[in-house]
Structures are given as structure tokens and as C-alpha cells.
Write a protein that binds this DNA or RNA. Structure first.
Lengths: 144, 144
DNA sequence: ATTCATGCAAACGGTTTGCACGCAT
DNA sequence: ATGCGTGCAAACCGTTTGCATGAAT
């Protein structure tokens, strides 16, 4: 329902100048609905007729990351960084190794486990990164 | 107790020619006891007086990886790849963000969770990557 | 008017590769 | 003797940066 996101205010709140590029980038990432590469953002913008330089995309994402507006991820078999809107809810992703879609998975099974580990091993666990992979529902029964 | 590993046989079994370099590299990784960077392996060898080229380390690790003798990892905030001996047991690591040691953690809390997810979302989960970070026991109470 | 954002091209750092030579089998 | 392993240097690719210009406040 809230299709028109208030990126202007979001940027203003973070003391970032509100430029066309920054708005478009936020829009592209938001609409993607899954973690996207810098290049993907760049190409999408080009496709939309936006004249922008790749380094600007890098710099804007860096700035957004610094203010916590986006989150940076990566998958182990790929060297490229991934970005997504910071939804503020703790969640993980499932990567389909066939269609390469990344599907969000709500919740997290690690809270209790980490608490137990902290007690057992004396760690102070500050965070974790969990990424699952396999076949999604629609790719599962397709042949190779 | 089994300090002398039989890397020769290991290599032979995988149809890899048994060279000094390959033995030394396996030895260095094995002795490290935690995931190590390519550069670290290279420097350790130099330190031991082994004349080797960095690209050879890369190529050997690639070969070992292909035969499953080693496992490749990475941590999200670092761009370098990490390698460790493939112990064949499913385990994860805890990275201390202060001393940068990676401590192995036996077991895995995800089996049941993944089973539940598969049923709920129709995925076929083939694997996962979990990495935890925070402060280890000895760094925990040290001041910054 | 000032500050910060941007484009361009060059630099960077980890990794890969082509080629000629050398060693294990 | 053959094929695979290695060293060297150059290429590669994602990312970062210096500098001069342009736009938002």
C-alpha cells in the first residue's frame, strides 16, 4: 500500500543531501526486494535512462550503508557485494542455486543457541551471518 | 598424537603429483588450526625458507579445493579468501573481532530449523554458511 | 556562497592466467 | 619421455580514490 516511499525525508534525516541519484538508487534497491549488486543497480538505472557513473553508485551505497539505510551482504561463491534496504528486522536469506533468487526468511533460529554458546565457551557473541542455499519451491522439481 | 600427517598418500589418492610445495602447503594449513589466508600461507612458507611463488600457492589451494582436501571460507568484512583443512565434520567458526582468531565451534543448531523451513516454504535446502562474531573469552574483559 | 555530490580515469588489492621452463612419474 | 607443476609478469575484476566540475542547501 505504501508504494511511494519517502526517501527525501529519509535522506534529510540522515543529513545527506537529497539528490536525484540518491533517490533513484534507494528506489531501485527498494523495488528489487532482494539483495542486489552494485552493478545491477547501475544497469537498472541506465535502463531507466538515468545518466550516472558507476563510482557514484558505489559512493552513494557507501553513504547509505554508513547511515544504516541499507545493509551489505555477500554470498560465498560470488565476489560481488550485495545491498538491500535495511528493514531493521533480523532475518536471513535463502539463495536458490538454480534461479539465483534470494528469498527472505523471517526469524532466526540462533538466539538460544548463541546464549548457550556464550555460557559454554565464554564468548560474547555480537552477531552472526547465516546464509542458506538449495533449490526454491519452483526450481525444486525442474530438471537440470 | 598424530602429528605427522600422511599428505603424500592423500595427494596420491587424489591423483595429484606429490611435490614439496604441495606437502608444505598442506602442512602449513594443517598446523595453523584455523582458516588462513593465501597470503598467510605464502608468508609462512617464506619464513620457513621455502622458495615459492604466490601464484603457486593459489594454484595448489585451488587444486586441493577441487579434490575436497581443503575448504574455502571468507568473513564478510574482509575481501580475502580463507582456507582450512577439510575435517569432514560439520562445524562453524566464531571470529573474535578483537584478536581476529577464528575458533571452531562443534556442532550445528540448524538441522531441525532447516527441516522446518523446507516443509513450510517448499525449499530443498542443500547447505548453509554460518559465521558468528564477537569477543572471545580472553578479549572479552580487556579494554579497547 | 559554501558544502557536498558527481564524473572520469587512474589506482588499488586480491586473484587468475599465458607462457616457458622444470620436476615427478 | 611425458605430462603436470611452477615462476614470472601481465591481465583481470570488483572496488576505491584524486581531482576538477556541478548541484543542493
Amino acid at each position: 500500500m505504501d508504494e511511494i516511499k519517502d526517501f527525501k525525508d529519509l535522506l534529510k534525516k540522515e543529513n545527506l543531501k537529497c539528490t536525484k541519484h540518491r533517490e533513484s538508487i534507494l528506489d531501485v534497491i527498494d523495488k528489487a526486494g532482494q539483495p542486489v549488486t552494485v552493478e545491477a543497480v547501475y544497469l537498472k538505472l541506465k535502463e531507466q535512462g538515468v545518466a550516472i557513473s558507476l563510482s557514484t553508485v558505489y559512493r552513494v551505497l557507501e553513504a547509505l550503508l554508513g547511515r544504516g539505510l541499507v545493509v551489505k551482504t555477500s554470498v560465498n561463491d560470488d565476489s560481488k557485494a550485495l545491498f538491500e534496504i535495511n528493514s531493521m528486522e533480523h532475518k536471513h536469506h535463502f539463495l536458490c542455486v538454480k534461479c539465483r533468487k534470494m528469498l527472505p526468511v523471517d526469524g532466526c533460529p540462533l538466539e538460544d543457541y548463541e546464549k548457550a554458546l556464550e555460557e559454554k565457551l565464554g564468548f560474547s557473541i555480537k552477531g552472526h551471518k547465516l546464509e542458506m542455499f538449495g533449490y526454491c519451491r519452483s526450481c525444486r522439481y525442474k530438471d537440470e
